[in-house]
C-alpha cells in the first residue's frame, strides 16, 4: 500500500506579532511548524501502514526551509519525503497550490501507484480547506473530508468505508480507492519520535523537485499566474471599542454582587430579563 500525505509548513500563529505601526507581520523568530491539522492525517496514515504494511510518502510545496517539516514527518515514521520547491510556485493561492500538488502526485504515482492521499482538514494560515478537495478533483480521487474514523480498508477489494462528520451526525460512506482523505482534528494523537528517530530523519535523503521534475509544463496554472484570487488589502482589525461598564462591587458580598448583576439586566435589558426569568418551567 502506498499512502501520500500532503503537509504544509506554517508559521506558529500563536507566536505571531503584528507590528503596531506598520501592520506587517513580524516573522523574525516565529518558529515554523507542521500545520497542526496535517498531523492528524499523518498519524492516521502511519497507523494504516502499521496495520497493512506499505509505505508513507510525505510531500510539501514550499520554500527550501520547508525541509524541516519533512524531516519532522520522517522522524514520526514517514518513509520518503519530497520537497516541491521552485520560484515559479511563489504567490500561489489554493487553486494554484492544488494544481502543482496534483501534478506532483501524478508524477509520484507513475513510479509507484498511490492508494490513498491524505491532506489536513485545513491550514492555519491559508485556512481555506480547498487544497484537499482541489487535489482530489484534479486527480479524480474519491473525496472524503472531515473523516472521524476509518471503519474498513479493503485493499484487495479496493474499497474504503469511513465515518464522515456531517451536520448533526456522521455519514457512513463506502467508496473505492484511490481516495483522498482529510481527517477531523482530535481523532488521534501523533506518536512521539525518539532521539534515534530524529537522528535517522536528519540523515535521511530528501527528494527535491522543481517544477520540471514534477512534470509541470503549463506555468500559467501555478504560482501567482495560476491564482484567481488577489489580496487587495491587509489591515489590522479595528474592533469597536466601547469599554465595559464596570459594576461597582466595592464592599459587597457575593450574594449582593449576584443580585447587582441580575438587577442590572432587569433595569437595562428588560426583554432579556423577561426571557430569562419569566420562563415557564
Amino acid at each position: 500500500m502506498h499512502i501520500v500525505v500532503c503537509i504544509k509548513q506554517v508559521p506558529d500563529s500563536a507566536q505571531i506579532r503584528v507590528h503596531p505601526v506598520t501592520n506587517t507581520i513580524m516573522r523574525q523568530g516565529v518558529p515554523a511548524i507542521i500545520n497542526p491539522y496535517d498531523l492528524f492525517s499523518l498519524e492516521e496514515a502511519l497507523r494504516l501502514k502499521d496495520q497493512f504494511g506499505g509505505k508513507v510518502t510525505v510531500i510539501t510545496m514550499g520554500p527550501p526551509q520547508a525541509e524541516d517539516a519533512l524531516r519532522k514527518a520522517l522522524s514520526f515514521g514517514a518513509d520518503e519525503a519530497i520537497l516541491l520547491t521552485d520560484r515559479a510556485f511563489a504567490g500561489a493561492d489554493t487553486l494554484a497550490t492544488s494544481c502543482a500538488l496534483a501534478q506532483a502526485l501524478r508524477q509520484i504515482g507513475e513510479k509507484e501507484p498511490v492508494d490513498l492521499v491524505f491532506t489536513g482538514k485545513q491550514t492555519i494560515d491559508g485556512d481555506t480547506a480547498q487544497v484537499g478537495p482541489g487535489v482530489a478533483k484534479r486527480l479524480d480521487l474519491q473525496l472524503l473530508t472531515y473523516v472521524a474514523k476509518i471503519d474498513e480498508l479493503d485493499l484487495a477489494g479496493r474499497t474504503i468505508t469511513v465515518q464522515r462528520r456531517a451536520e448533526g451526525g456522521v455519514q457512513v460512506l463506502k467508496t473505492r480507492l484511490p481516495a483522498l482523505i482529510t481527517m477531523l482534528e482530535g481523532t488521534n494523537e501523533m506518536r512521539f519520535a525518539t532521539m534515534t528517530d530524529m537522528f535517522r530523519a536528519a540523515r535521511s535523503p530528501l527528494t527535491v523537485w522543481n517544477k520540471d521534475d514534477a512534470g509541470i509544463t503549463d506555468i500559467s496554472k501555478i504560482g501567482l499566474k495560476g491564482s484567481p484570487t488577489v489580496v487587495s488589502k491587509v489591515f489590522a482589525p479595528k474592533p469597536k471599542s466601547v469599554p465595559a461598564q464596570m459594576l461597582d462591587i466595592g464592599g459587597k458580598s457575593q450574594t449582593e454582587i449576584a443580585d447587582l448583576i441580575i438587577d442590572t439586566l432587569s433595569a437595562k435589558h428588560a426583554p432579556l430579563y423577561g426571557e430569562l426569568f419569566d420562563r415557564a418551567l
Binding site: 508559521p11 500563529s13 500563536a14 505571531i16 506579532r17 503584528v18 501592520n23 507581520i25 492555519i124 494560515d125 485556512d127 484567481p228 484570487t229 488577489v230 489580496v231 487587495s232 488589502k233 491587509v234 489591515f235 489590522a236 482589525p237
Partner: peptide, 16 residues
Amino acid sequence: RPTFGGSLLCTIQTLN
C-alpha cells in the same frame, strides 16, 4: 477574512 490567526484581516478579490 481573518488571516494569521486573526491578528490581521485581509480583503481578497477574484478579478478575472
